[in-house]
Design a protein around this nucleic acid. Structure first.
Lengths: 110, 110
DNA sequence: GCAATAGTTAAGTAAATGCTTCAGTGTTTA
DNA sequence: TAAACACTGAAGCATTTACTTAACTATTGC
């Protein structure tokens, strides 16, 4: 479910916007309401809600509403999925370099 | 230089597009020419070049031209920077949860 | 030298994105 | 019960994005 390419698409899309990354950054320090998320951003509350909806659709943020306030939290599993995608590619590249190094070292020995 | 927010912006922006992620994926298995990158993509060569230029501007890919062929490689340092941004936020969240858990366990003990 | 190859650049376009304002809906508080 | 609060949704708009085609430059092979 988390490695579903469509979900990965939404996650990287969501992370591409600076305002949304700022929101994720804020949430990494603890839950927040929509207004609290909006406070440091030079943007209307409505704009923030739209960003938040994208973050939620991507799975990066989970929210729940109690009374009139919506509380937002990070979903670490989703962050881990994005992290993992990048990590796998980087490791594949680095392993390839290692093998190449070994090969060169061996052939040099003869 | 790699933690420069503008550069991070370009990197996440670059990773947001599926075609560009497919190019990074291809490159994680080894260097490739522009035409080789283009081959699996349902897109004109020109479109691929434009994506490639973004990838290069973001620092995720480095290229060099020999004769008429441009060879592309992944820049693992840049991948690591994006990875690191996500990782830090996720860990901040998880550490927070741990402290909360400890606190609850302690207060329950009395 | 001529043709094929590999890539580049510019111009145009349709769709997506990131906002805004404004007019709501429920929920608390005085 | 009325006003303040916390959000929500729709409509509109300027900009950016992801392409396309077409014309061009530089290599390489015959």
């Amino acid at each position: 479910m988390l490695h579903d390419p469509a979900q990965l698409d939404l996650m990287f899309q969501a992370l591409a916007d600076p305002a949304r990354r700022q929101m994720v950054d804020r949430l990494s320090r603890g839950p927040a309401s929509v207004s609290q998320l909006a406070e440091p951003l030079a943007m209307s509350l409505s704009g923030v809600v739209q960003h938040l909806n994208l973050l939620e659709a991507s799975g990066l943020v989970r929210t729940q509403k109690l009374g009139r306030v919506r509380t937002c939290q990070i979903e670490p599993k989703a962050l881990r999925a994005a992290e993992h995608w990048i990590n796998e590619r980087r490791l594949a590249w680095e392993r390839r370099l290692d093998r190449l190094g070994d090969f060169l070292a061996e052939t040099e020995g003869h």
